[in-house]
Structure formats: C-alpha cells, structure tokens
C-alpha cells in the first residue's frame, strides 16, 4: 500500500475505538505517574548504583541459606495442604456430584479465593495471627485451593456421565462412584496442577515473605531497607537459585509421575 491509496474513509469506523483507547492510555499513564524524566533519571541512578550492588556480598550467603529453606518449606507444606482441601472443594463444586446449594456455596468460596491475590489474604491473616510463617502457609494454601479446586471441579464436570452411570448400575453408592470412577479419572490432573502450583507458590512466597511471612523475601526487603545493597544482590541470587531449582525439581517430578 502506498500513501496515495491511503484514505481516511477506510479507517473511519475504527475512530471511536481508537479515541477511547488513546484516552485510556493517556489516563492510565497519568494515574500511574509515568514520567520519562523519572525513567531517565532512574536509569542513570541505577547505573551509578551498580557499584553498590556488585559484587554480591558472598559472606551473606550463609545467612541466606536458612531463610531460603524456610521459603521452600512454606511452599512444600502449603501446596499439598491446598491440594488436599481442593479435593473437597472440587467435589463440592462439581455439578454432577454435589446438590445445587452446595455447588453454589463451594463455587462462591472458590471464586473469592481465586479473586483475592494471596497477599490480600495474607494481610487479613496477619491481622488475626500476627506475622510469621503460619500466616504465609495459610495464605498460600488458601490461594492454592482456589486455583486447584476450580480446575478440579471443571475436570469432574467433564467426566462422561455414562461412565458414572455404568458404575452406579452395578449397585455402587454415590461415595463408591466417587472413589472408583471420579477420583481415578481426575487425580492425575490434580497432581500435575499441584506441581505447577508449587512453582507459582515459590515465586509468590517471596512476595509474601517481604510483607512478613518470613523467609528469603523478608531478607531481601530488610537488606534493601538497611541500604545493604550488595547483601540484597546476594538475596536476589539466592531467590533466582531457589526458583530455578524448584522449576527443575517440578519438571523432574512431572516426568516421573506422568
């Protein structure tokens, strides 16, 4: 296409949409205080700070091991607990298993759990239980229930009703149908989803840690607040290592299980 072919008429119908879009971009840029001068200054400042960040404070490595382990353990506890409870919620939220009132209740609870970011759950839990790993474990577990429960309920609803009828037709009770037909069909997918969720949880727990759930996220936040930037770099390296290892590990488990 050349410029001579360009005609305003062709694009006229997109005009309102384009106008709304541009206004939305401008408004959001204004509201989120985007400023190119800040960006330029930030880049310059960042470059000048590089010497403070590097080299990493290798001696802090020893202090970081314990918090990294705490973060890992928080996820290792929260994910299976969340997965176990998601079975209950998944069954309760499936149309072909649960009565309508139970299904609606469970779906609502799941939707709330999914809608709220973990950190919001954490802040509420901290208000009740105080800072510490317990609130972190609970927040991650609740978040996991939301995601895993919804996936599980959807998977259960997709089971061919004739398969369940065929098991009921030999005289099985509804609970036997769940045990011998529903669970065998969906548990492998639940395991795969839980492994994926574990990876998500590792990343999320860094954030939760920074708010007060403890672990490596807290170390990073503390180091930066105390302006110990090379120590912060060490924490970042530790976090990257943790995320990398958890990804490797979950890949390995996935290949073993499936």
């Amino acid at each position: 296409m050349t410029w001579s072919e360009f005609s305003f008429e062709r694009y006229r119908r997109y005009l309102p949409a384009a106008a709304i879009f541009i206004v939305a971009v401008a408004a959001s840029a204004y509201l989120s205080e985007v400023s190119l001068t800040d960006l330029r200054r930030g880049i310059l400042k960042g470059l000048s700070l590089l010497t403070l960040f590097f080299p990493p404070d290798w001696s802090a490595c020893k202090d970081m091991l314990q918090p990294a382990l705490v973060t890992l353990v928080i996820c290792l506890v929260a994910t299976p607990i969340g997965a176990a409870f998601s079975i209950v919620f998944g069954l309760a939220a499936a149309r072909n298993i649960a009565p309508e009132w139970l299904r609606l209740t469970a779906r609502t609870v799941i939707a709330v759990e999914r809608g709220l970011p973990e950190i919001v759950i954490l802040l509420v839990l901290v208000a009740a239980f105080g800072l510490g790993p317990f609130a972190g474990v609970m927040a991650l577990a609740i978040g996991s229930i939301g995601m895993l429960g919804k996936l599980l309920a959807d998977a259960i609803e997709e089971i061919d009703p004739r398969v369940l009828d065929a098991v009921a037709a030999v005289g099985a009770t509804p609970w036997q149908v769940i045990r011998h037909a529903v669970l065998p069909e969906v548990l492998p997918a639940l395991v795969a989803n839980s492994i994926f969720r574990f990876e998500v949880n590792v990343r999320a727990s860094v954030l939760l840690g920074a708010v007060g759930a403890g672990g490596i996220g807290y170390e990073l936040d503390a180091a930066i607040n105390q302006l110990e930037y090379s120590r912060a770099t060490m924490a970042v390296l530790m976090i990257l290592l943790l995320v990398f290892l958890s990804e490797r590990a979950s890949d390995w488990v996935r290949s073993k299980v499936l």
Binding site: L31, S32, E33, V34, S35, D38, L39, R41, G42, I43, K45, G46, L49, R203, A204, V206, L207, A210, G217, L220, D221, I224, Y229, A232, V236, I239, L240, V243, F244, E247
Partner: peptide
C-alpha cells in the same frame, strides 16, 4: 528466561531504589 523466573517483587524492590517510591515503579 531470567526475567521469567525473577519474582516481580525482586524487580520492584530494585526499581524503588532507582526511580523512587510511587506507582511508576510498580508499573515498570
């Protein structure tokens, strides 16, 4: 690949130092 496995909070904490506190750092 590195960006993918870096948790957002890490990026944010570093940006807060560079561009200062405010929604801009979070947006970035």
């Amino acid at each position: 690949a590195v960006e993918r496995s870096t948790p957002n909070i890490v990026v944010l904490l570093v940006l807060l130092i560079a561009v200062g506190i405010g929604p801009f750092a979070a947006t970035l």
